[in-house]
Write a protein that binds this DNA or RNA. Sequence first.
RNA 1: GGGCGGUUAGCUCAGUGGGAGAGCGCUUCCUUGACACGGAAGAGGUCAGAAGUUCAAUCCUUCUACCGCCCACCA
Length: 879
Amino acid sequence: MSELPKHYDPKAVEPRLYARWEQAGYFHEEPDPARPPYIICMPPPNVTARAHIGHGSTFTPMDILTRYHRMLGDNADWLPGTDHAAIATEAVLVRQLAAEGKSRESLGREKYLELAWKWSIETGGTIETQFRALGFGPDWQRSRFTMDEGLSAAVRKVFVQLYREGLIYRGKRLINWDPKAKTTISDAEIEHEERDATLWRIRYPFANPSMPQGGSIPHHDGGIEVATTRPETMLGDVAIAVHPADERYKNAIGKTVLLPPLLEREIPIIADEAVDFEFGTGAVKVTPAHDPTDYEIGLRHKLEMPSVLDLDSRISGEDVDVGKYAGLDRFDARKQIIEDLRAGGLLVEEQPYRHAIALSSRSGEVIEPLLSLQWFVKMKPLAEPALAAYRDGRVRFVPERGGRTYEQWLENIRDWNISRQVWWGHQLPVWYTPSGEIVVAETEDQALRIAHDDFGATELTRDSDTLDTWFSSGLWPFSILGWPEKTPELEHWYPSQVLITGGEIIFLWVARMVMLGLKFMGDVPFRNVLITPLVFDAEGRKMSKSLGNAIDPMDLVEKYGADAFRMGMMRQLRVDSQEVRFQESRCEESRNFNNKIWNALRYTLALPEGLPSAMTLPAPAALTVPDKWILTGLHDAVTEVSAALDGYDFSTAAETLRRFIWDQFCDWYLEATKDPSQHATRAAILSFVLNNAMRLLHPLEPFISEEVWLTIPHDGQTIMTATWPDTAEIPADREAAATFDALRRSVERLRNLRAEIGLRPTDVLELEVPKNVPAALASLAALFTGGKVSTVEASGGDTDHGIASIAGVAPRDVLAERYKKEVARLRFEVDRGQSKLANERFVANAKPDVVAKEREKLEHYRSELARMEAALEELGVGA
RNA sequence: GGGCGGUUAGCUCAGUGGGAGAGCGCUUCCUUGACACGGAAGAGGUCAGAAGUUCAAUCCUUCUACCGCCCACCA
């Protein structure tokens, strides 16, 4: 018999096949204008990252689509790479250095960058190794790194051009300071989280207590009260604002108050529409340098904007006198100020308060809004074309709601702060002359020339800041194709067909790629954006290390194999969903599925007649009813799987394959081939169907499909470059298929009956088969039910139930019980149908085919009922 | 505060304007010429609640409840 083991062993297959594929260069493509281009740009994982469950949900679809399109004959390539992940990498490095008692400053920039490069290269291999184990087959020869020379050149070129066009500028703006990562971050990198806090109500005494007249001011008691959650910033207050329409404060506008707790500064009361007079006291303290709303108010009223917090989050007296608080940490200062306010009788009230605070998505630290001189990209001019591209359908989101998120963000876009204070990254191509003029150039030589020509300067200092990581990843779709060089790759493959990513980076990445692609390539970087669901655990919780519920995909590969992990994941990945509650049992089930396939192969290989040497179908006249049935099923499976993949509906593709291979092919067809009536054609049909099924399966389960395909008759060296199954080459015979389906229903009924009447396995069921049923079908019915066949006169046309009926063996009372139940059910159905058809409004209004179907059903139930009643009669029992 | 999803079998989820489905789990039986990572049979659901539209609603509309996601400058 077969030498194949009883159980499929992915460990023995997967690494061997992957190595072969890679060595043979099957993942690599050259641009070929003769074939339709199809590329997918891999979202570059952080160079230091490890594979996580999210890669399973977003990267598997990329691999599937690339493999699918390659088989369709497209010039398909999946372009990989890694991202230098500036802040994340720097955080790790700085921590490591600190553990050794060092710092990046003590090392110096040059040595530090050497270290960063070394570390990136060392750890960078991990995720690529893991991707291989997952069966991902990108074109490794084309792998790029966001810090490599070509991509760095692209970054510099883009920066310089945007600067020259006035789209990049330097300015003092309110920015988001991450005190832990010690860098600014963009608005898109902020997360809001509800937290418990305290709301303090503080009285600001009037500078001249006799001034307010009219007594309409609430809580006045010699001053105006404001509510705040951040008393430490009050040292930087420059005004009190009220709503212009707020009657209570009408008389106070224009007056001044003394700024607590020092009471040495006089600040005005102003009117601004940003104030919500429903909240708190309706009066708000204005600290332009440390709050986004206040900053806007400050701009509108041309207020001073003194900073009172430095980059270490300590109170700073650089801009304004902060008295004894100078140098205190922000939270110590808060405590001290509250204490002093209380002592001075200026603290009116203190209450618990829950509100959303801004956190850094990089470090989790509370964001400190600060006024700082930074570099920005002017977004409006870039956003307009990106919006237009979405609105006229040049870029399409799947599911569509992702597009509304994109649109909403672009409509309300604000300038993008791109300078970072980390060292690991693309250093700004910006230099300053000794007298402070700005020189922007792609290289230092150019900068020097410009400095000399324009400013007569010979010495330059380079800006020490680096660019936001997302600046370089924003260029990814064209920089990896060689831009700014005019490469054949760029020419042929840009733009890509689809971008696949999670919804959390629509702003950070997707929108920016569209903007920059339109700007520098004149076309969108991708036609479709597929937003994949977030993966949660089975209880719906986010997977996280701290919760201990994170599933490592590599563990699942170890347990079930990469194919089973992919299949298990894809079965759950519904295209319209926004989350997946990941169930490991799906992987186990897929492992079982693979074993099923494996054993179908073992069965096929063990056929005594052997397999044909080439994959060919028998002559149409030779095909049996089961042959035609399984070929029809295969025909439909090809249609359905193709449609599902075209629509990014991976779960339907997976489900269709499972049903076809397991429920149809293994459970029915393969069983049928054990009957002598099927022997003549079975070897050819089994090989043919397996061959096609493996090709359909290959994008989802690359390994087992290849292993099986190579073992049976096939054309070519690898399934990877085999052609996608073609329905034109798979004959469908609906009539034969219907006959077999009728046989199946009959068999199921008989089996059910057998179980119900409690037949033992040794008991042989006697089947009565109408004479007009082909002998082959009669013997199949016997095979499937373990029965013995005798023929009777044809009962008249109802093939559905005329194929076989039970005889003799059942105890009379058991059979009667069973028949009675069935009669009752059928009567219910007949009544239901009759009353429905008796309803004139139904017959008049319902669609004709619905009515016709209803009539058919009624007819069917009536004849069934008659049969059952006759059967009961025969037993001598009345219904 | 705004926007968007979800609520169907014990669990995770498909699905359709006209006879409620899958996988897992559960029960019973079965080592029948591939597979016990298997085969056969079966139990289990007022399709969240209410109202409406319709000849007909699990499906369409409105409202309610609960869960979740995204956005947002009520200090």
